[in-house]
């Protein structure tokens, strides 16, 4: 844990207005860690740029842009949703 994160944890965990994650162990507080900036701030940056360019650039088309976004959201949902359904089935059948 970085010194900054450590001090943030201490400040938030000890203060009266601590982040309301009652079930989370202390080391998960605050809701910010290296992954927060590394994944959402750096690694996924090209994806944000891509989506922005779809809408801002020229030529652009509302239907095609929404279709692209639909694929991104839909495929993610199908991927993990189908695994979730499989998990439910495994639970019902075997446990």
């Amino acid at each position: 844990m970085t010194p900054l994160a450590a001090s943030a944890v201490a400040a938030l965990a000890s203060g009266p207005a601590a982040v309301p994650l009652a079930s989370s162990p202390e080391y998960t507080l605050p809701f910010v860690g290296p992954g927060t900036y590394l994944i959402f701030g750096i690694v996924l940056l090209p994806v944000y740029a891509m989506v922005a360019a779809w809408f801002i650039g020229d030529p652009s088309d509302r239907f095609a842009n929404l279709l692209g976004l639909g694929y991104l959201a839909g495929l993610t949902t199908v991927l993990w949703g189908s695994l979730f359904v499989a998990t439910i089935i495994i639970g019902v059948v075997f446990f």
């Binding site: 994650l21 998960t28 910010v32 290296p34 927060t36 994944i39 690694v43 996924l44």
Partner: peptide, 20 residues
């Protein structure tokens, strides 16, 4: 919560993004 901290979750996240 774990994607904020765990390299294993970073991995799952970015591979999902690559696939999609």
């Amino acid at each position: 919560t774990r994607v904020q901290w765990s390299p294993l979750m970073w991995d799952v996240t970015v591979i999902t993004a690559y696939f999609v």
